[in-house]
């Protein structure tokens, strides 16, 4: 019963119509967008596959000793470039590192870059997006142009300029410093994307009838934004954040590959990739194992993002 006009002619159906919505909800239990999404998610095999991968990687980052008894810098030059074996599942690197042990320990730095870059990107971008979308006019124009400056900068190129500026060739930054720099460079260059997503979601939410109603009733700006609009605008940003987390892990690896990202003494998958790239023709496993880990992890986040988007989008059912 979705025809509004039906009410004119069918006063009987009219009553029935109202009753449908009432009892319909009682029977089916009221479900929110998120509750519905959760039920949808649990039906998807992709959700479980990606979930398992992410949990394993997170465990590696949190308690590496669960996966290997060797430390990250376990080193024996006698085994240099040996292919995978029972004692070292991923073989040894040119410098004699156990690649499996090193990769397990490298998960932490890689994941940290991904998580923090995502958090900063999404927080800054969402805040700017809400402000631009809510206030519109001059504020919107200013923030949008400001965002364009960073959105227009090609990502890798921008990162090269920033990271080389802070670490000119020959300098030796500390581990923490370079991690922070990599995280900040990624964030500075990516926030306009989440701003754009949040901005359009906010503009749509602003037009919703109940938001208009809340304004007409004199609710405060803060209450309108946080109470009424945010729940409607979070979904697209959440999907973006999931996929971005994966993408930033790939970026970490790419920057390290170019020699401007995380570097020793920090161990990350990118660092291992940079170590292995020069020996790729003779012992490809040095590059391919860490690169494979990056790929699988990125894959997991992209799949999770897909699953979450499908679950949140009623149209796709």
């Amino acid at each position: 019963m979705s025809d509004p006009q039906a009410l004119d002619t069918f006063s009987g159906a009219d009553a029935a119509d109202l009753a449908t919505t009432e009892t319909g909800e009682r029977q089916r239990k009221p479900r929110s967008l998120w509750g519905d999404a959760w039920i949808q998610l649990r039906r998807k095999p992709m959700f479980y596959i990606s979930g398992v991968i992410i949990v394993v990687v997170a465990l590696m980052a949190a308690v590496p000793d669960l996966f290997t008894s060797r430390p990250a810098d376990f080193n024996n030059l006698d085994f240099a470039s040996q292919p995978p074996s029972a004692s070292a599942w991923f073989g040894y690197s040119f410098q004699g590192y156990d690649i499996w042990a090193r990769a397990v320990h490298g998960a932490r730095a890689t994941l940290l870059v991904g998580i923090f870059a995502t958090l900063i990107t999404v927080l800054i971008g969402s805040l700017m997006g809400i402000i631009a979308g809510f206030y519109g006019r001059f504020v919107d124009a200013f923030l949008s142009r400001f965002g364009d400056i960073f959105a227009g900068l090609p990502f890798v190129l921008g990162a090269i300029v920033i990271l080389t500026t802070f670490n000119p060739p020959g300098s030796e930054p500390s581990g923490t410093a370079i991690l922070v720099q990599v995280i900040l460079s990624i964030s500075v260059l990516s926030w306009p994307v989440s701003m754009r997503i949040m901005r359009s979601a906010t503009i749509v939410a602003k037009q919703l009838d109940y938001v208009k109603a809340a304004r007409a009733l004199g609710a405060s700006t803060r209450r309108i934004i946080f109470r009424h609009m945010l729940p409607n605008t979070v979904a697209p940003v959440l999907v973006y954040a999931t996929i971005a987390l994966g993408a930033f892990i790939a970026v970490e690896a790419t920057l390290a590959y170019l020699g401007i990202g995380v570097r020793p003494p920090v161990v990350s998958w990118g660092v291992m990739i940079n170590d292995g790239k020069d020996y790729v023709q003779n012992s490809p496993h040095e590059l391919l194992f860490p690169a494979g880990l990056v790929t699988i992890t990125v894959l997991a986040f992209v799949m999770l993002g897909d699953a979450v988007r499908d679950a949140l989008d009623p149209k796709s059912r």
Partner: peptide, 18 residues
């Protein structure tokens, strides 16, 4: 497509090059 999206460019490049 999922796999291609997850493969960093340098990996695709290196693998195809080899």
């Amino acid at each position: 497509t999922l796999l291609l999206i997850s493969l960093p460019t340098f990996v695709t490049g290196s693998v195809l090059q080899i």
